[in-house]
């Protein structure tokens, strides 16, 4: 009898934090909505999203340069990090000798936990000069080095360990039996990875990539330090950009004397939140579809 009561109490108690977590998301969205109301009443949503005129003094808040900056930087980061991460996860889980695995895997996990400011400093000290003096000249372009490419590189370096680490877990979790079945039919290791392991692990791989994306998309410090922060739509990899998180971090609390500025930044934050949520929802739909197809 007592055991049943305890079970019931635990059931109730553990419900609270689980519920609170989802509540927090709703509260955050609510607060951001309320706080961005002012700017939304003042300017139309299309103007906010698609105008590139950013003149806060004149009351003009076109977010397009920042949206474009975020998209560019995130795109570069994901384009670099997805293939690198997946190949290293495949290597570590399928090809690497036990000893290599045991050495490399903890290092990757460690890398995934390093504070972003460290990556930012690394970017300023090494990547900015690298892009300025080596990469850009190779294309006969001159740049300060504080640009989209550097931002993307720093982000990729941050995101690769994260995706690799999760993808490795996911690939390792594919039952050994399935690999054996494929190999015993005469498939080689790469065919086995392509047709069996990856297929089975696909939902988890999607989850890993989404997590990496969310991290890259919202990363503030490391990007802000190397991306130049110029409120103009970048037209090449070597142009500076000004992603939304950097905009908020640089200006919140500083420019509050300007009317509507505070509300504009709240709107920017809301934008970030909404995109990440939408992305996660899409990923979940994909996952459900895929899972139904496999098992």
């Amino acid at each position: 009898m007592k055991r049943q009561i305890i079970d019931r109490i635990v059931g109730r108690l553990t419900f609270i934090p689980a519920f609170a977590a989802s509540l927090l998301l709703i509260v955050m969205t609510g607060v951001l909505c309320i706080r961005s109301q002012e700017i939304l009443l003042n300017q139309s949503l299309p103007t906010l999203l698609f105008s590139s005129v950013w003149q806060p003094m004149a009351g003009k808040f076109g977010f397009l340069p920042f949206i474009a900056g975020t998209v560019w930087v995130t795109f570069v980061a994901m384009a670099l990090s997805i293939p690198i991460s997946l190949f290293s996860a495949i290597y570590l889980s399928q090809y690497a000798h036990r000893r290599i695995k045991a050495t490399v895997q903890p290092l990757i996990d460690l890398l995934a936990g390093i504070p972003s400011i460290v990556f930012g400093l690394f970017g300023v000290l090494l990547l900015v000069p690298l892009v300025k003096d080596l990469i850009a000249p190779a294309f006969h372009i001159s740049t300060s080095g504080y640009c989209v490419l550097t931002g993307g590189l720093v982000l990729a370096i941050m995101v690769v360990p994260l995706i690799t680490s999760i993808a490795f877990e996911v690939l390792t979790a594919v039952p050994e039996d399935m690999r054996i079945a494929s190999l015993a039919m005469g498939a080689n290791r790469w065919e086995t990875v392509k047709y069996v392991v990856f297929r089975k692990a696909f939902p988890g791989i999607v989850a890993a990539v989404v997590l990496g994306f969310s991290r890259a998309f919202g990363e503030t410090m490391a990007v802000l330090m190397v991306v130049g922060n110029v409120a103009k739509i970048p037209s090449s990899l070597f142009d500076p950009a000004y992603p939304i998180p950097a905009l908020i971090a640089n200006n919140y609390g500083e420019m509050m004397s300007i009317p509507l500025y505070d509300s504009a930044l709240m709107f920017a934050a809301l934008l970030l939140l909404v995109v990440v949520v939408i992305f996660n929802i899409i990923a979940n739909i994909v996952l459900i579809r895929v899972k139904r197809g496999i098992s």
Binding site: P175, D177, M178, I180, A181, S182, A184, Y195, V196, R199, K200, I294, S295
Partner: peptide, 8 residues
């Protein structure tokens, strides 16, 4: 194999 191991 000992336990059936259909491919996914």
């Amino acid at each position: 194999a000992q336990t059936p191991n259909p491919l996914p």
